[in-house]
Design a protein around this nucleic acid. Structure first.
Lengths: 348, 348
DNA sequence: CTGAAAGCGCTTACAG
DNA sequence: CTGAAAGCGCTTACAG
């Protein structure tokens, strides 16, 4: 029927000027109304099985892809999940992102990353700009936020899961592990192996670092060594080079120290390498323990004793929990403890 | 005037049911038309200075934030920039992302990250799904893409900048450095320091790794040592542990090797640590050079000689170039060579 | 330099 | 179980 092309009142296949295949095109091809297509596609309510099939066939034939912007505008909810992390230079958060990414995109969500630089003001600003995008969900690192940030989250009504730390607050949601308990456990390991002068060395003083320090203090106190608590804090960002410097400082300022618990593996790795350069025997002269079991810790000389933390699994589980919340499904366990593991290697 | 609240025909401040402050609200408050507000906000065309001021005052007073979804739907262009990288586990790409992130969000764009896992099929799938979001711009890692992927980019009409490698193709845009030349230069450094049996060890065989290998070959050939080319390739992902294994393999299978150029610092770092464990003297017995100057390379024992690559600057410059393209501005230098730097340390 | 009209491509109540 | 109407909040031509 080539004449059809010439017939002015023949219904055009593409209603719009953009050339884009729209939901209306699918509806026409399937012989149903646009609403039915919309419902069939989203699996909402009951649509007759045969109609669903016709719709799916039309979608496949036309290569229809829904327009996220139109969807977001009409439903006032986008397919974005905003994820706020402190820094991209910390491997722990990158691995968290990686896991979140996989889970979220597999479910059709887009991840929007916000980097707060460990700054409450920045966190608030980033969150505010993200909220304008009407995200379907929110992943926040940690539990501590400024009042303004908390109010923004609350007021937005956007489902939110806090990760890395564990909350107990009713109504909120979290996936993580007890940083305090992990700090206590690794300190206990040092004490169990006979160390008597254990120092806690920390950089980048975020809440989790401080919680690990609390665990350290608790372990010493439980062992009746409360007066031996010795913490070295640096406000600088964590790095291998800093770890080496802090080791040197501890050796000089507190030469009786026989073990160091570093708040992060990068510091501990740096300390191990510095010890090598300085000729300081590990673990004989001083035992070294880290935190997070980062890439490379198993390759150190000697291999680094540390705490393996489940950031990959945290990402997976947080994504699951958030998706349940976004669908309005109930969450049986709003605060999920994924635990940690002491990894005993040769350094301590 | 409390009676105003009771007057049925009093103009409501908020026209919509959502409670959201809209452009129409701003227009009303400023006493201009919505189009004028739209133009004033985007800095488009000439709007009388006093009107712009009135609009800005109204925006500030009402706390107006434009709706990205509405904007995207009306303009058929979102405020997203899609960034495709091979892996999140490679620090190089994380640092690239970090730089892109800062530049892009500062300019009001949202970064959408796609991870291709070094897989052409995955790259195509990710790109296809991103294109449905009608991104304003595109950042692609590398120059080599499947024909389907290339066609998708071309057909979408979305401005695209390729990063890490350097193209020469007219019409395309790239920011990076010559991987081949960098591979040549570090190999030359090894030759210059008297090494005569240099092996190239590579994992995760992506195009850039292969280009570095070409540079390695070129250097040997230029030195009249073309017959001494020896490359060890592993298809496994790059890691410190793998670096140690590959060092052992080279020492066993080609004991006359007096220098290794590793395609990435994580391999080289692992090799250095393995050498320490094995009692293999570096650089006396064997010189070790890496690539990328990753965090920790300066802390190794001995410190690692490597090639510093400008991924941060690549991110910054690529963002600049893309923003020019997105605004339709001309780009004076479509292929930007940011160079590299040989970092001489003790390992080679 | 400014505006009235139409439309972007969906979904949300409201009916039936 | 299905649909007609209205609307989400912007911008794009088209005028003047």
């Amino acid at each position: 029927m080539p004449s059809r092309k010439l017939t002015t009142n023949a219904a055009p296949r593409r209603t719009r000027a953009t050339g884009r295949v729209t939901l209306a095109d699918v509806a026409q091809a399937a012989g149903v109304s646009p609403i039915t297509v919309s419902r069939a596609l989203r699996g909402e309510r009951a649509v007759a099985a045969d109609l669903v099939e016709r719709v799916q066939a039309a979608v496949a034939e036309l290569g229809y892809v829904p327009d996220p912007a139109a969807r977001a505008l009409a439903s006032s909810r986008s397919s974005h999940v905003a994820v706020l992390i402190p820094k991209l230079s910390n491997t722990v958060f990158v691995e968290l992102l990686d896991a979140l990414q996989r889970s979220l995109t597999a479910a059709g969500y887009q991840m929007l990353i916000g980097v707060t630089q460990y700054d409450a003001r920045e966190e608030e600003a980033v969150l505010r700009s993200f909220l304008a995008h009407r995200p379907a969900g929110l992943i926040m690192t940690g539990l501590e936020h400024s009042p303004a940030t908390a109010a923004l989250i609350e007021g937005s009504g956007v489902p939110c899961v806090h990760v890395m730390e564990l909350s107990a607050e009713p109504g909120s949601h979290s996936v993580g592990f007890s940083q305090r308990e992990a700090g206590r456990a690794i300190t206990q390991h040092l004490l169990d192996s006979g160390r008597r002068h254990v120092t806690y060395v920390a950089a980048q003083l975020d809440p989790r670092t401080l919680q690990r320090g609390e665990g350290y203090v608790a372990a010493l106190q439980a062992a009746g060594m409360g007066e031996r608590v010795r913490q070295v804090h640096s406000a600088e960002p964590s790095s291998m080079a800093l770890g080496g410097q802090l080791l040197a400082r501890v050796l000089k300022e507190a030469p009786d120290t026989d073990a160091i618990f570093f708040c992060n593996d990068d510091l501990a790795q740096g300390a191990l390498l510095a010890a090598l350069r300085l000729g300081v025997k590990v673990p004989e002269r001083i035992a070294v323990a880290g935190f997070n079991n980062l890439p490379g810790s198993d390759q150190m000389v000697p291999p680094l004793t540390t705490v393996a933390t489940p950031r990959g699994e945290i990402g997976v589980q947080a994504a699951q929990m958030l998706m349940a919340l976004m669908r309005g499904q109930p969450v049986e366990q709003p605060h999920l403890d994924l635990g940690f593991q002491i990894v005993r290697r040769a350094s301590a």
